[in-house]
Simulated assay, not measured.
Amino acid sequence: MAKIKYARRGLLYAILNLKIMVLLSNVLFQGARYMEFGELLYKLSITIFLSTALYFSGLDVFFSICLGHVGNYIFNGQFFVVYRYLFASKVLTKSKVEYVLDCCSNLSDSKHIRDVLFIGSLCRNTLKESSDIDIRIFHNSGLISSLFAYCQATKLRFLGLIYRVPVDVFCFSNLSFLNKIDEREVPLHINREREFMAMYPNSLSVFDSKVNL
């Protein structure tokens, strides 16, 4: 059975929980409300690039923009995160979690990346086959580091599409970004970044967390 996106009751939430509405809202907004301004610009620039290429190939403006936006979603979206709300939701396995952690460990070695953090069910130790993996890439400020982080997030999303892994990935350079998460959650980390650990002194390494799937 598919997951229910909104647990609240009422006509509005009943409409928003319709599968077609869940898919359309995901394609339309592509997680924009979770992005810092820089990542939002990066995301929009991909749509603009694809739309421009399609326009010069002969399509009209409207179809170029629509197809460019959908194309961006296909390879830079997070389809298997929303997939859980559309079909049978048990898509996560222990081997997939280990694969993602290995990718993130390699990413965290970069000089541009301060740490890779994990929130949601993984940090709450409630990970299930119907869960997704919530990843937040904490990167240095500056154009080069930001672009590197955004590109790595795109890579993780694309790998998630190829290997059917529900990864929910976003980037940030200011720890105030973490104010958006549930205040009861303590993110897991990889690098023990000093500023992050000062904010979350009880944070554990993601490799010390238990994955019971």
Rank of each mutant, 00 (worst) to 15 (best):
M1L: 11
M1E: 14
A2F: 13
K3Q: 10
K5G: 11
K5M: 12
Y6I: 06
A7L: 10
G10Y: 06
L12V: 15
Y13P: 05
Y13S: 10
L16S: 00
N17E: 07
N17M: 10
M21I: 12
L23W: 08
L23A: 05
S25P: 03
F29D: 02
F29V: 06
Q30S: 08
A32N: 14
R33G: 09
E36R: 12
G38C: 04
E39T: 04
E39V: 12
L40E: 08
L41I: 12
Y42T: 01
K43M: 13
S45D: 06
T47L: 01
I48G: 00
S51L: 00
L54V: 06
F56G: 03
F56R: 07
F56A: 00
S57I: 12
D60E: 13
V61K: 10
V61T: 08
C66T: 13
C66L: 15
V70K: 05
V70E: 08
G71K: 00
N72M: 04
N72Q: 07
Y73N: 09
I74Q: 07
I74A: 01
F75C: 09
N76D: 09
F79N: 12
F79K: 09
V81D: 11
R84Q: 13
R84S: 05
F87W: 11
F87Y: 13
F87G: 03
F87R: 15
S89T: 09
L92E: 02
L92T: 00
T93G: 04
S95G: 03
S95I: 08
K96G: 00
K96S: 05
K96V: 01
V97M: 12
V100Q: 03
V100S: 05
L101K: 05
L101M: 11
D102V: 02
C103G: 01
L107C: 02
S108K: 10
D109Y: 15
S110N: 04
R114C: 14
L117K: 11
F118L: 07
I119A: 12
G120R: 02
S121N: 06
L122Q: 01
C123M: 03
N125F: 00
T126S: 09
T126G: 02
L127P: 00
E129K: 13
S131G: 09
D134T: 11
F138T: 08
H139T: 13
N140G: 08
S141A: 14
G142D: 08
G142I: 14
S145C: 11
L147P: 03
F148W: 06
A149G: 13
A149V: 15
A149M: 12
A149L: 14
Q152T: 03
L156A: 05
L156E: 04
F158N: 01
F158C: 05
L159H: 03
L161E: 02
L161N: 07
I162G: 03
V167W: 00
C171E: 04
F172C: 12
S173V: 14
N174C: 11
S176L: 07
L178T: 07
L178S: 03
I181C: 02
E185D: 15
F196D: 05
M197S: 12
A198K: 15
M199C: 13
N202V: 06
N202M: 15
S203K: 07
S205W: 07
F207Y: 06
D208R: 02
D208C: 10
D208V: 03
S209F: 05
K210T: 07
N212G: 04
L213H: 07
L213C: 13
